[in-house]
């Protein structure tokens, strides 16, 4: 570079070094890069030179301008950093000071269980149907092969609204409503409250949650029912849980079964929770009675179905270690808070 130009750059470097604030930086930068600054003075002289000289000096001037620009830009960044650091050093927080959080609310344990079950079945391609708590005698009983005066009506003490209207004793009422409204394949679950005349005590409640499962198709078997139940029981109570299937009787299924799970507390050895039996009663299920299929307009020669009803309250008690059912309906915040 031309000696004169090098001197300009050296001069600028010396001046910039001394700058402490932005205002001065702008002033100094104007001395070199401004309209009347050193650089523009030299640029003006270019026009008096030969083409060859113009080219050589022009290049050198461009290099000088780039160097000056960089010099001032670097200084500007340096000053900005200093300002920011100064600001940051003054902003202090004692991160150890305790705060009053606004915590998340909690779901009711029975609702958690219901949600988990719904998720499980939805993921397996089931659809969810809603039913009503108040049902006709027809859907709650007659269409499920329980005509009036049937001895099985004794099994479920029913709240009546009038002769033809009841508080549903089971979510099974949704079976027939579903089958009447669509032909197979059906893979349905329904949850909600069911009602039976039971005095409130540590293990009974006149209102309780239930989950209904119904599958109707050409190739549905009892083995499918048992496999499905085994899966859901392991999902709810753990991989080691085993299912015990016993014959039972429900007028709307044939064969009917009752399924017990090995006690999650003692693993089947016997404890207070399972009354020393090693098993806890979980649910009733079975192959949909051919008469129920027929009454719903489904050809029982072509289609088979399975159905199951799971009581949620008792399961919630077992799963969440609540020993008195009344606690689940009392809604003491201190209990609810625990189910985060």
């Amino acid at each position: 570079m031309d000696k004169q130009l090098q001197e300009i750059l050296n001069e600028a470097e010396v001046k910039v070094k001394q700058i402490k604030d932005k205002q001065t930086l702008i002033q100094v930068s104007a001395l070199f890069l401004g309209k009347n600054g050193a650089l523009s003075g030299l640029m003006k002289n270019l026009k008096n030179l030969s083409n060859e000289e113009k080219r050589v000096l022009g290049e050198q001037l461009n290099t000088l301008r780039d160097s000056l620009n960089k010099l001032f830009k670097d200084k500007e960044n340096e000053i900005d950093d200093a300002i920011l650091n100064e600001k940051l050093s003054k902003e202090k927080v004692d991160v150890t000071i305790p705060v009053t959080p606004s915590p998340y609310g909690t779901m009711h344990p029975i609702e958690i269980l219901k949600k988990d079950l719904i998720d499980y079945f939805i993921e397996r391609g089931f659809e969810l149907k809603d039913g009503t708590d108040i049902e006709t005698d027809y859907y709650c009983f007659e269409a499920l092969n329980v005509p009036k005066e049937h001895p099985a009506r004794e099994m479920q003490d029913t709240f009546y609204i009038d002769n033809e209207t009841v508080l549903r004793t089971h979510t099974s009422a949704m079976q027939v409503r579903t089958m009447e409204s669509q032909q197979p394949p059906i893979k349905m679950i329904s949850t909600g409250n069911a009602y039976r005349i039971d005095e409130v005590d540590a293990t009974h409640s006149p209102i309780f949650g239930q989950l209904e499962i119904l599958v109707v198709d050409k190739n549905v078997t009892l083995a499918d029912l048992i496999g499905t139940l085994e899966g859901v029981v392991k999902y709810l109570l753990g991989e080691k849980t085993e299912l015990r299937v016993r014959p039972s009787y429900f007028p709307f299924t044939e064969p009917s079964i009752e399924a017990d799970a090995t006690c999650p507390k003692c693993g089947g050895k016997g404890c207070a929770l399972c009354k020393e039996t090693g098993y806890i009663e979980l649910l009733g299920a079975g192959m949909v009675h051919p008469r129920v299929l027929e009454m719903s307009g489904i050809d029982s020669n072509i289609y088979k179905g399975f159905a199951a009803g799971i009581g949620l309250d008792r399961l919630a008690m077992i799963k969440y270690g609540v020993s008195d059912l009344r606690d689940l309906y009392e809604n003491d915040i201190n209990l609810l808070k625990q189910f985060k």
């Binding site: 719904i118 089931f126 059906i186 893979k187 198709d217 549905v220 496999g227």
Partner: peptide, 24 residues
């Protein structure tokens, strides 16, 4: 005896759309 039944998982049934309803 029910212990003779090998559990299966509805492998032979057809699929449906499934899913939650609007209310849920």
């Amino acid at each position: 005896g029910f212990n003779h039944i090998t559990p299966t998982h509805c492998e032979q049934t057809s699929s449906i759309a499934g899913g939650m309803n609007t209310m849920l």
